[in-house]
Design a protein around this nucleic acid. Sequence first.
DNA 1: GTAAAATTTGGTCGACTGACCAATATTTTT
DNA 2: AAAAATATTGGTCAGTCGACCAAATTTTAC
Lengths: 203, 203
Amino acid sequence: MAGELVLGEVVTSKSEQTKAEILRAALEVLRESGAEGLTMRGVANACGRKLNNVQYYYKDKAVLLNSLANYHFQLCENFVEDFEPSSGELSAKAQLHEAIVYSLNYAASLSDSCLVFRELWAISTRNEAVQANLTDYYTEAFNRMVEFWYDYPLENRKKAAAILVPYVDGYSIQCQALPYSEAEMANLLTDVIYAVLTKELAE
Amino acid sequence: MAGELVLGEVVTSKSEQTKAEILRAALEVLRESGAEGLTMRGVANACGRKLNNVQYYYKDKAVLLNSLANYHFQLCENFVEDFEPSSGELSAKAQLHEAIVYSLNYAASLSDSCLVFRELWAISTRNEAVQANLTDYYTEAFNRMVEFWYDYPLENRKKAAAILVPYVDGYSIQCQALPYSEAEMANLLTDVIYAVLTKELAE
DNA sequence: GTAAAATTTGGTCGACTGACCAATATTTTT
DNA sequence: AAAAATATTGGTCAGTCGACCAAATTTTAC
């Protein structure tokens, strides 16, 4: 009886499960075919439903798209929270290095969510709702990063996050064009970010 | 062959001029309507031509898209070359700061080319030709940056470029979500990049 | 068990797309 | 001036799109 958990929420109605199922399919279509190829019919096929059925849950393509973007952001937040620093006793810098390796690997592997972001960046240019939700997502990503480094001075943490968080997105785009391996970039970034985190504050 | 479009001085055949005129219109359509809205008819309208006429010069939508991407990369290279450091005598760090301000301003202003890149990032996911040309473009951007800092050690220049060049792309996406102004980020980045450039080389 | 609500299906509609063919007009070459 | 190459136009084609309506089916509430 107890419905599947969707996104960590409590029991969801069947209707909500169906909507989530459709969003999962829509996300797959968006990733594989881009915004051009994201059609109501395509989504319906991807989840074994009829066009009219999808339209019953999402009356508009605009509604579907906005829900889709938010669903993606939720998935990404869950993913980020999955990162657990290894339990061994690492130096502060080694902990930082571990997190940076994790981040760059995510970006360079061109994971599904990475490709979806590319679509959403383009979509957000002409879709204010998606744009607003995207900005909110990045604000939260920034705050999570700031909290992650809790034992450094706050101002330094903010500066470090303001460098690292955007960098990861840029790296996901350009990593193939850089003359350094992922590991080399991780080492370089660790040095740079660590210097920012540990810089003495001017008073 | 002489088929390359020359954007400036050299005399181009009428055919080449027409092709360039079409690409200009196509670029405008791509920027305003995205990859979804980029249609042969739309491009034709944007340059006051008939559909069949556009198809005469670009038989395929795929051909048009690839030419369009290359045209955009050319424009961007011209734009970057337009940057001239101010002629006054600036300290090394002030020169760096000037270039970083220029870069961040380009990214944060969401200029036309900035928005077109968002489309191309998405398109390149499913278009190998565009993907290859995009990577080439970034490689050249990286090399230009490395050359720009000619009086620092080469290894440091490469590291600095490997940080700054991707960062600018990420910044163009996230700048609205960061708690720092453009000027503040420029100051922060200047400190960070300068430290990388001037770091003593391990032997 | 029946009525009401929620869900699923079938079918249609005008609008738009890229590709294609044939014909005309313009420019260039001879 | 005639011929040839280049450029432009008109029209058609099958395919796809989102939106919409009406009906049938299933589930839920009473």
